[in-house]
Simulated scan of single mutants.
Amino acid sequence: MVYKIDPEIDRHYIEEFRQKPIGAHSPGLQRLLNTMRHDPSGRQVVLVCKRPFQEWVLGLMPADRREPIAIEDGPVFTDIEEAEWEVFRRRWRLLTGESINRPLRD
């Protein structure tokens, strides 16, 4: 049985991810991230590295992996944590219907 995100129960993991988007996570947040990273349709928001360790953009994986990734025109991220935060925010909205209207850093 695949875990289904419940915004009421899982909302507190948003702040945990926001505080530490990269690195080891609690078991609950890791379960949430594993769920967010699996889309049965095969289409999902991903990071695409434009310049190693310097620039990232968002892309959309196609359902058919033989097709190219659709790269967004912008924004271009120069901070990997900012980029990861945007992927998290978009996947959360897709899976829950809720928007996260907070920046990574206050």
Rank of each mutant, 00 (worst) to 15 (best):
A83K: 03
I71H: 02
E15A: 14
F53S: 02
R89D: 03
R102F: 08
R37C: 01
L47V: 07
L60V: 13
R89F: 09
P68L: 01
L29D: 01
L32K: 02
V48I: 14
L94W: 14
L94A: 15
G23P: 03
D79Y: 04
G42C: 04
V46Q: 05
E55I: 13
L58G: 06
Q44T: 13
F88H: 08
D39L: 06
I80A: 06
E72L: 13
E16I: 04
L32G: 06
Q19R: 14
G74P: 01
V45H: 11
L33N: 01
F77G: 09
E72M: 03
C49W: 01
E82K: 13
G97D: 11
E86T: 13
E81F: 00
Q19F: 11
R90G: 07
V48Q: 11
E55S: 10
E72S: 12
T78H: 12
P62C: 06
T96E: 10
P40Y: 03
I80V: 14
P52F: 00
L95P: 12
A83Q: 07
V48K: 15
G42Y: 10
K20W: 04
V45N: 12
A24Y: 03
P52L: 00
P75L: 03
I80T: 04
S41I: 04
C49I: 02
I22V: 13
